[in-house]
Simulated scan of single mutants.
Amino acid sequence: MIKKFLFSSLIALCSITSLHAQTKTKDTNNTADPDNLASQYLSQVMGVAVDATSNLKLYKFIYEWIGTPYRYGGNTKKGIDCSAFTKAIYDKVFNTTILRNSRDIFSMVNPLPKDELKEGDLVFFKIKSAKISHIGIFLGNGRFAHASNRGVVISNLNDPYYARYFYKGGRILDSMKDNLIEE
């Protein structure tokens, strides 16, 4: 129900913004770009700065999954866990096959500190464990998407809970992108 409301709001926002852009400018070749409108909408809804350099496919994918319940071992819209969600993003958005478990995925990355993360990088956590136990995808501005016990959400790395358990960020190694890994 909420997604239908948000979708209809997006349509209304696109219509209003398009009309405003057409009346504001005399140059008919400079009408509103639908991808730019979607970026603005997703920025507001998701609380993430989506700009012209952002991967709009990534944000659309995440938006479609927001609210999906958490289910350990799950990999569908009926329920999904953090590593399956991350694997789905890499498969559908980046056309890259990654492993299924957060610890195994960590073996595929070049570890990075928080301040070097870029959109699409991975974030790893050791939550109440000596081993990596949670994974998400970095969106920028301290935000990351992940499947949590509250379902698929966008959270802030600076939130005291996530800051406490943050282990490292990581970027998939180019050699891993070239050699797609089978499950």
Rank of each mutant, 00 (worst) to 15 (best):
Y63L: 05
R150K: 14
F94G: 06
R143G: 00
V152M: 05
I181L: 15
I66Q: 11
K78F: 06
A88E: 13
N95S: 14
S102W: 15
D121R: 11
D178T: 13
M46R: 10
A49Q: 14
F94N: 06
H146V: 02
K118C: 06
S54Y: 11
V152D: 00
G169N: 04
I181Y: 13
G151Q: 02
S148F: 03
E119Y: 01
N75V: 03
L173K: 15
E183N: 12
G120A: 09
G79E: 08
D115T: 12
K128D: 14
F138E: 01
I105K: 07
K131R: 11
Y59E: 02
Y90K: 10
N101S: 11
P111I: 09
I89E: 12
F94T: 05
R150W: 13
E182A: 09
K128L: 13
L99Q: 14
C82L: 04
N149S: 15
V109Y: 09
V50K: 00
L58F: 10
I137P: 00
K131I: 07
G142Y: 03
D121W: 09
G151T: 04
K77H: 14
C82S: 14
H146S: 15
K131D: 08
N156M: 11
L122K: 02
A52W: 04
D159I: 04
Y70N: 12
V153N: 05
K57M: 10
G47F: 08
A84H: 09
E116I: 01
L112D: 02
K60M: 07
D159F: 10
G79S: 08
G67C: 10
Y90Q: 09
P111Q: 10
G73E: 15
Y90L: 08
D104P: 07
P113R: 12
E183I: 11
I98M: 06
G140R: 00
I127S: 15
G73M: 14
G73C: 12
I62S: 08
I154C: 01
P111N: 11
F144W: 04
Y161K: 12
K87T: 11
G120Y: 03
G142Q: 03
T53W: 01
I137Q: 00
N101W: 10
Y167V: 04
A49D: 12
S155Q: 05
S83F: 07
